[in-house]
Amino acid sequence: MWVAPALIMYSVFVLYPLGQSVQFSFYKWDGIGPATPAGLDNWRAIFTEPELFGSVINAFILIIFYTALPVSLGLVTASLIRELRVGTFNTAARVVLFIPQVLPPVAAGIAWTWMFSTEGLVNQALRAVGLESLTRAWLGDFTFALPAVGVIGFWLSLGFCTVLLLSGIGKIDPSLYEAARLDGAGRIAEFFAVTLPGLRQEIAVCATITTIAALASFDVVQIATQGGPGYQTMVPGVEIYRLTFLEQRIGQASALAVFLAALVLLVIWPIQRIGRHE
């Protein structure tokens, strides 16, 4: 009774389609005509078609920008600042840092497309400091397009991770730091002995959320690059959308979709273990 409405909506619109995705992945189907069984062909193609496999690799590279960098930078910031005390400035800081996370990712995509464009702020800044030679159309550049998409993700994640880690570090018992100092620990030793273990949970939460965002990115890439130049920024999310609606390869799209879902679980699993209370 209490649970039924939630469970029904969830079953009809999540579990059942998930089952269908798994099923479709073993068929060759254009979405309209009759489907023919395809065995493991679609699954094999994920590893043999460079375009598909490349999209998976790109998603992993995005983890560096969406997860690794924001978490590390957030940790450094947190250990330098220690805690956000109450106060107007600190509240303001917390709110402002949080803003990127609450905006529609589509808008972030548009904002950064403008930032990275030929006339955008990034190039303007480079010109201002005399690095004219480095200016380029970042999102259209083979070397820099993927990192540039990464920067968008970094922007989305950084504030959130920082605020979360700051609030976590504020909860660490100050006496632990006192004790470490009495033992003669330097700043670095203190970081590894007290801060890092104390923030396990927060780190795990940050890493989980941002990793999902990286692996399942769609909005930002679809707006900023559509996977280009070449296949340089193609990610599974955009690939699934195209396979389904443009190429009408429903089976292939479903195989990639299920693979992506499994991949997310596989990557999240160890992160969750790290965050577990012992």
């Binding site: 079953s11 579990l15 059942y16 998930l18 089952g19 269908q20 798994v22 099923q23 479709f24 068929y27 189907w29 254009d30 979405g31 309209i32 005509g33 009759p34 489907a35 023919t36 069984p37 429903i250």
Partner: peptide, 17 residues
């Protein structure tokens, strides 16, 4: 097993309009 159940629920080849 629950996922498997969901799978069984949706068997039959798609798209035979």
């Amino acid at each position: 097993p629950a996922i498997l159940a969901a799978l069984l629920a949706s068997c039959g080849a798609p798209g035979a309009q």
